[in-house]
């Protein structure tokens, strides 16, 4: 078994001995670094997508779903009576933490974006709104609807869930896609490194044969390749992460618009999360190269 300590020692200790055994390669090295960089760059976006989708899903399914509204449309004279009836019903409904009719001011503020600030609420047949905040496990919307129909015929329960549910589900699915992409990107990194390592091992087969013949053990020979590919991958992916973070940081914030893009950046300590990618890619490269080297060496007596 290989211990983490010995792996880290191998990577950090300057070891020209083992490494110079393998002739330096020109373009191969840059292609590996470039691929690792691109993969890390894409992985940062996949990560950002997952986190954003996660935040969106949480917000839609949790925070927003905790409130709903009851709309009361009635003759002006009957509005107050209906509001009272609705409030009475709500008072005796389990799972409701708070309920309160919106004031005219609040309704005006809600409608202002569409109809302008000086809306004559009294002269227009605008429905009265009651805002409900759920508590505990929430209420049973069907039961409440039936009771409202009996007590206050002008009242309609709008529990948002009807249109919010698919959105929350879509956001969850998006989060899953993000994580799936992340895993695929890491797997592709492993595949690319394996291809590069195989090419390098094949090109250096005569070197491996000589080393085997003079008594070098497989682990020693593999180390030269493993060290090289792991360091290249670490360097490439660190660069990729840096570039991706700068790109995200420079993306104009859509915070105010409350749109989908709101969450695509990282927040707070989230900016540190992508830095897990270089060591992760490095670990993938380490394992892939080591496996490839031992496979190649097994062909040699």
């Amino acid at each position: 078994m290989i211990s983490l300590g010995s792996v880290l020692r191998d990577l950090t200790r300057p070891d020209p001995g083992a490494e110079r055994l393998v002739p330096p390669t020109g373009t191969g090295a840059w292609l590996t670094i470039f691929s690792a960089g691109v993969m890390a760059f894409l992985a940062v976006f996949a990560l950002a997508l997952s986190l954003a989708a996660g935040r969106l899903a949480d917000r839609w399914s949790d925070a927003l779903a905790r409130t709903s509204t009851i709309r009361i449309s009635a003759e002006a004279a009957q509005v107050q009576a209906q509001v009272d009836a609705v409030m009475a019903v709500l008072q005796s409904t389990p799972g409701i933490a708070d309920a309160r009719p919106l004031s005219d001011e609040e309704e005006r503020a809600l409608l202002a974006p569409w109809f302008g600030a000086d809306l004559p609420l009294d002269t227009l047949p605008i429905p009265k709104l009651v805002e409900i905040t759920e508590g505990g496990d929430g209420y049973d919307p069907e039961g409440l609807r039936q009771r409202l129909a009996a007590e206050a015929p002008g009242a309609t329960l709008d529990d948002h869930a009807r249109w919010r549910q698919p959105l929350a589900a879509a956001a969850s699915r998006l989060r899953l896609l993000g994580w799936g992409s992340l895993i695929l990107i890491l797997a592709t990194t492993g595949a690319v490194i394996t291809l590069a390592a195989n090419a390098s091992l094949a090109a250096n087969a005569p070197v491996l044969r000589v080393l085997r013949q003079i008594g070098a053990q497989d682990g020693y020979i593999a180390r030269a390749f493993v060290r090289r590919f792991t360091l290249r991958t670490l360097g490439g992916s660190a660069t990729g992460v840096l570039v991706a973070l700068v790109a995200i940081w420079l993306t104009p914030s859509a915070q105010a618009a409350e749109g989908f893009l709101t969450g695509l950046g990282f927040t707070g300590a989230g900016w540190l999360l992508p830095w897990l990618l270089p060591p992760l890619c490095g670990a993938v490269a380490f394992a892939a190269t080591r496996a490839a080297a031992f496979r190649k060496l097994a062909e040699m007596p």
Binding site: L21, V210, I214, Q217, D218, L297
Partner: peptide, 21 residues
Amino acid sequence: RDGLARMRRRVGMVEQDCRFL
């Protein structure tokens, strides 16, 4: 394989087609 490598350290081999790095 490792054991064979260790044994080869006690053997000097000059091949007919000498190969080097």
